[in-house]
Design a binder for these strands. Sequence first.
DNA 1: AAGTATACCAACCGCGAGCGC
DNA 2: GGCGCTCGCGGTTGGTATACT
Length: 199
Amino acid sequence: MPMAPIISKCTKKEVNRGTWTAEEDEKLAKVIEIHGPKRWKMIAAKAGLNRCGKSCRLRWMNYLRPNIKRGNISDQEEDLILRLHKLLGNRWSLIAGRLPGRTDNEIKNYWNSHLSKKIKQNEKKNEGSAALESIQNSKLNKQIDGIAEKPEEGCSNRDTESTPNFIGDALFSFCNEEPLDLGWMNQFLQMDDSLFSIL
DNA sequence: AAGTATACCAACCGCGAGCGC
DNA sequence: GGCGCTCGCGGTTGGTATACT
């Protein structure tokens, strides 16, 4: 019978909860600078924060980490979220991995507060599954207009036949690459329609 | 101006996977 | 193999800001 220690569940009564203060952020950042973003329990202790490791990790991942982009999700990012969600479902961390500077929490919040409503509205309007397509296509058309036909450099040596292996491979590769610029996004937007048709 | 509803987002919670002992 | 610990993920909650009546 697994009996996890109370402390690991962040339920210790005397642990701080709620919004982080600037002072706490500063302390946490300093410790992470020295020890790196791992061993969160140790980091929480070293920082002298009355927080559990889990809370420290979350704060770092969603707020303090370098290169975090906040707010103003662009049309292009929104479209990418819609498409990746269609491919991956609620795999927020995977989706966030394709959006440089965005966190899984932010994407999840954005989805729950904006996109899910939008989709529901459109489903009502269009009566069914064609709704999502219409949102995506209207946006996609705007983008595709500007996309050059030639493939991105660096992908030219791939076997581009649409075999199931290639698709799985491609998806896997997209999910594991370092975040790229709009070139990647365009490449993805060009090819994921073929993924959908086969999947 | 005051009260209420809604939107947004930061943070918490529970769970499962991976790892070392 | 069992156990404890750490980490990461996705769902949910709660506080605050803003809009509306």
